[in-house]
Nucleic acid binder design. Structure first.
Length: 568
DNA sequence: GCCGTTTTCGGCCCGACTGTTTTCAGTCG
């Protein structure tokens, strides 16, 4: 079981204990689940190496939960969960997953009607029977029904690349309104999470400005859910909910702090405030009812005894401790990126010509771009023979003569079933950089072994999308990242952070682990299209969530320096 | 059940919103 699966176990324990109205334990189990999700090493590895003692190092894990993790690792299940599951009908836990239904409501509904499934609840609502319960009006009924239908329709999270452009569009529209001095995309988008639940936009303005009237007229808007003085909600045509909050100047910093989140980060911040005899809320930092900070985030962090923390780090993964010690990393920025080392042209399955890619790269201010088309073995990627690649390389040589930026001859060579690289020794010397990758088809079970073998090949510089995850297909990395990263460290191989939102591989957790091991990484877009070159910002977001600095990312360096780093 | 340069016991974030509330409980972020 991987870390997320173990965390799910403890979240379910928390759900059940919440229904049973057990005090405080649910919080402890939730904290444990969070600590596990945020932990970069697989718990089974930690346990193998350091046993219970190692597990207790993880935030939120004490003696008791450590023992429970041990049981899960050794037996694949948790007898405690199985025991408490028997105490509570399963449907109650399911009900709790609905919007507007918490433990109290779920229990109340069950106790009265003894329903057995979601379908039963739907029937109940359609017959108007939920009214019989005290505290259930028409509106709540309607909203619960909507919640069920939403759940049936689709998973409620959206990809970052879907949400971010829309959020920016709305923000820009708001910025154009009179009386608006600032607007900011907050929430999980600001933290560059790979998937997001809704869009949060924070606006600095005097109250009652008719901002929302303008937003409501935008083409991307489906309907307005609610419109208030300080808080409004709308739904976009693609189903994303947008919450817009309007705050006065003196609270903009504290509101930013609050609405950027994460929730866990904020909880810690408030605890720290309390210890200092202060109170932190979205309205400001208060001492005895008097605001001592609020307009600027920096001031809030400073008065709580720490450095200002970049949005992407605010996940309660040790960033607060680092900020208190003044030891935050200086995160890599988009403007540090000097080029893209993994792009596909029309020679293989790309949709842009080399000339077009080079022109775009030049406009983006890059110093270099690598054309790394697929090798012949990759049929889906329309891989090319070495004969054609030699023609391509000639074209690159020619283009380099009158180009302002360096065009690099690359190859994305497939790692074949036997672990060898789909590239001749001669070709290895004819290209500037070799990216090797497994393209998982029906033969994914040996992917780790094959990748490890490929990394022993002295021609290989970069391993692309190192865990083989593909988001849309729900494919999480099937490869053993511990083994791959250890090998990368040993062999000096560069690991790729693939900025394509359908991959995001390495993800933030793995990239953090790689950074900690001192492995160098490269942020590539794997662009198959000119527009995909723009995905670099998402890759930088992952790197920032992984606490990476400029020195960890090779394509922040000029090409002549990269040449020295990559093993030839 | 976890955690501690304020504590090994006694805490555990805070405020808005909503419904139907006649003063507040439940849920959410």
């Amino acid at each position: 079981m991987d870390n997320n699966a173990i965390a799910d176990v403890f979240d379910e324990v928390a759900d059940i204990l919440e229904i049973e109205e057990v005090e405080w334990k649910p919080r402890a189990y939730r904290n444990a689940a969070l600590g596990i999700r945020n932990y970069s090493k697989p718990l089974s590895e930690v346990y193998k190496k350091d046993g219970i003692k190692g597990l207790k190092e993880i935030p939120g894990i004490g003696e008791n939960i450590a023992k429970k993790i041990e049981e899960i690792i050794l037996t694949g299940k948790l007898s405690y969960l199985e025991k408490i599951r028997r105490e509570i009908p399963k449907v109650i836990v399911e009900l709790m997953a609905l919007q507007h239904v918490g433990p109290k409501t779920a229990k109340k509904i069950y106790d009265k009607f003894k329903i057995k499934s979601m379908e039963d609840l739907k029937k109940l609502i359609k017959q108007g029977k939920l009214h019989e319960l005290k505290g259930f009006g028409e509106k709540l009924e309607h909203e619960i029904l909507e919640g069920i239908e939403d759940k049936e329709k689709k998973g409620k999270r959206y990809m970052l690349n879907e949400a971010l452009p829309l959020a920016e569009e709305i923000k820009n529209e708001i910025m154009r309104q009179k009386g608006v001095s600032k607007a900011l995309v907050a929430g999980s988008i600001a933290r560059m999470k790979e998937n997001i639940g809704d869009i949060d936009i924070l606006v600095e303005a005097r109250k009652s400005e008719p901002i929302m009237d303008y937003v409501a007229k935008m083409k991307i808007v489906e309907k307005v859910l609610s419109k208030g003085e300080t808080r409004s909600s709308i739904v976009l045509k693609n189903g994303i909910q947008v919450d817009v909050r309007i705050v006065p100047k003196e609270s903009f910093g504290s509101a930013t702090q609050y609405f950027v989140g994460s929730k866990e980060h904020n909880v810690r911040m408030r605890q720290i405030a309390i210890k200092k005899g202060l109170k932190l809320s979205e309205y400001g930092l208060f001492k005895g009812g008097k605001a001592i900070a609020g307009a600027k985030e920096e001031e809030i962090y400073r008065k709580l005894g720490m450095e200002w923390i970049p949005f992407e780090m605010r996940e309660e993964r040790g960033e607060i401790e680092a900020a208190q010690k003044g030891k935050l990393p200086k995160l890599v920025e988009l403007k540090d990126i000097k080029g893209d080392l993994h792009c596909h042209s029309t020679y293989s399955d790309g949709r842009a010509t080399i000339a077009q890619l080079v022109k775009s790269a030049e406009e983006m201010g890059y110093e270099y771009i690598a054309i790394a088309d697929h090798s012949e073995y990759n049929k889906i990627g329309e891989g090319i023979s070495e004969k054609i690649r030699r023609e391509e390389n000639k074209e690159i040589d020619k283009a380099n003569k009158n180009s302002n930026i360096r065009i690099i001859k690359g190859i994305e060579a497939d790692i074949k079933k036997d672990g060898t690289i789909d590239m001749s020794k001669e070709m290895a010397n004819e290209v500037d950089i070799v990216i090797a990758s497994v393209h998982i088809g029906s033969d994914e079970k040996d992917a780790t072994k094959r990748t490890l073998m490929a990394m022993d090949n002295p021609a290989v510089n970069i391993i692309a999308h190192p865990t083989g995850r593909i988001f849309e297909e729900g494919k999480e990395g099937t490869m053993d990242f511990e083994m791959i990263s250890d090998k990368a460290k040993e062999r000096g191989i560069i690991l790729e952070i693939n900025a394509n939102p359908y991959r995001f591989d390495l993800n933030d957790v793995n990239a953090y682990a790689a950074m900690k091991k001192g492995i160098k990484m490269v942020i590539d877009t794997d662009a198959h299209d000119l527009s995909e070159l723009e995905c670099m910002k998402y890759g930088v977001g992952i790197a920032r969530r992984a606490w990476c600095e400029k020195k960890d990312i090779i394509n922040t360096m000029p090409w002549n320096k990269i040449e020295k780093i990559i093993r030839r």
